[in-house]
Amino acid sequence: MSSDKEIKFPEETLELVRRMMKRYPEGKQKSALIPVLHLAQAEFDGWLSPQVMDYVASLLNIQSIEVYEVASFYSMFNLKPVGKCTIEVCRTSSCWLMGAEDVIRHIEKKLNIKTGQTTADGMFTLKGVECLGSCGTAPMLQVGAEYHENLTLEKVDSLLDNLRKEDKRKCYTDHFDPQSN
């Protein structure tokens, strides 16, 4: 549980944060806020608690309120606990035309939750999201960094079965850093 865990990045993530801050000019370290929030969300159970946001503020040497106002603006940041695996279904234009509504209804039924909710076993959260730039392969959904495209209800079923076996949340931690050498 996140509440028992000490809120601190492991050393290699801290090193990555320091390198990220160097990508921006002297005195503009706040620019690293969004990338660092991604790291924090991946590290601390997929969501940003006030304690986690305070920790990020201390790393970047900015006020906590500066972190809250940013975290609450962007749809990828979760301010409430989420399941082990967040399923994000595109519900916009072309996906909508190609059957996104059926996909969403199907997942809702299968997981017995509504969009925006988490399953009772804490496994899945279902989110409706806006166009993810995959309109030519609609309908689609995203899990972690992975795109699942040209969906059919059968594909969705086998995806859910596979996902039960994995934890996709960590995708944002293995961030490639070109300045590392």
Binding site: P35, S75, V129, P178
Partner: peptide, 11 residues
């Protein structure tokens, strides 16, 4: 120097 900067979901 060239850097990639990721956003976080906002049209």
């Amino acid at each position: 120097d060239l850097y990639v900067h990721v956003g976080a979901g906002a049209y």
